[in-house]
């Protein structure tokens, strides 16, 4: 959060670790730019921003969950179900704000369920959200069936995902707004401090008179809302709602972005601003590998290896 003084060698190695990610982002940009000049074209850069918006919103909203020492594996199906909720509300002729609210409420409800079970029943987050993943996916398939639902002639809704203002897609503005808002929450409100405190030492936070369970619940609600918002944007972007959107592996991308940003999976340390770096790192990596025609399998392996490497560095530091 703030500057941390250390002895000199520790400070040096600390800085290397702290700054590894920005350096890595710079390095991969340089590599891709040199090997493929089209990488630096405005179109491609805007494209990257557009591509990372969906994962980015989810990662930003998941950061608090991971900071409290939890995790949410259920974001993929929440994304799908929120898109379906929006589709059916559109279909029923509701006005746009109601449609968006309907989509978001899916995330709020699932997040609330996750949070209550994790915080009050004290069940392990990984199992709870794994079960929720299965349940929400099942619900989405019941609600939407296996077929695609086309969203047509809804200019207002389509604007969310496909519109643009001043040369930038609307989804990028939304991403930016969510990111700024969450950074503000982290840096300028008691919640931000409390989330870190719970992850660092939950018992101490409770003994300092904080409502730790309520806070943990809230954090899962935020995560669910983020996934739902991502679902709305995605369904608007591709003009379709589908129960199998956000396939298995989506949550991995989201967690990877957060963890690459230096948020400790054990809870405590973490920063939403750095999560953004993680998001762009993965986004640029994906984009560059696509441009260079790296096959999808190598991309998967590379991603797994990078996450393990990043975590191993983090574990060494701790």
């Amino acid at each position: 959060m703030s500057e941390r003084g250390l002895s000199l060698p520790a400070a040096l190695s600390g800085h290397v670790v702290q700054n590894a990610l920005p350096v890595a982002v710079a390095v991969i940009i340089a590599i891709f730019a040199l090997t493929e000049p089209a990488f630096l074209s405005t179109d491609n850069l805007v494209g990257i921003a557009r591509q990372v918006a969906i994962i980015g919103i989810m990662a930003v909203c998941m950061t608090f969950v991971i900071m409290t020492g939890g995790v949410d594996l259920s974001v993929g199906p929440v994304l799908a179900l929120a898109g379906l909720a929006a589709f059916y509300s559109l279909d029923a002729g509701f006005p746009l704000p109601v449609v968006i609210l309907a989509g978001l409420s899916v995330g709020a409800v699932v997040g609330l369920a996750n949070g209550l079970i994790v915080a009050f029943l004290q069940l392990p987050p990984i199992i709870v959200t794994l079960a929720m993943l299965s349940m929400v996916r099942g619900t989405a398939l019941i609600v939407g069936g296996p077929e695609q639902h086309l969203i047509r002639n809804e200019p207002g809704y389509s604007f969310i995902g496909t519109g643009s203002m001043m040369g930038l897609p609307v989804s990028v503005y939304i991403f930016a707004a969510v990111a700024v808002f969450m950074i503000l929450v982290q840096r300028r409100t008691p919640l931000g401090l409390l989330v870190a405190a719970i992850g660092d030492n939950e018992r101490a936070a409770r003994l300092s008179g904080h409502r730790t369970r309520l806070t943990k619940t809230l954090v899962y609600v935020i995560c669910g809302l983020g996934a739902a918002l991502a679902g709305i944007i995605q369904s608007s972007q591709v003009h379709t709602a589908l129960a199998t959107y956000g396939p298995f592996g989506t949550e991995l991308d989201v967690i990877a972005a957060v963890v690459l940003g230096g948020t400790s999976i054990m809870g405590g340390n973490g920063s939403i601003a750095r999560t953004l770096l993680g998001v762009f790192f993965l986004g640029i990596l994906n984009n560059g590998m696509n441009i260079l025609n790296v096959p999808i399998d190598i991309q998967l392996i590379a991603k797994g290896a990078i996450i393990v490497a990043a975590l191993a560095i983090a574990a060494r530091r701790g």
């Binding site: 870190a196 660092d200 030492n201 101490a204 003994l207 405590g268």
Partner: peptide, 8 residues
């Protein structure tokens, strides 16, 4: 274990 947030 119960008193301080060691990393804060």
């Amino acid at each position: 274990r119960e008193g301080l947030m060691l990393d804060m």
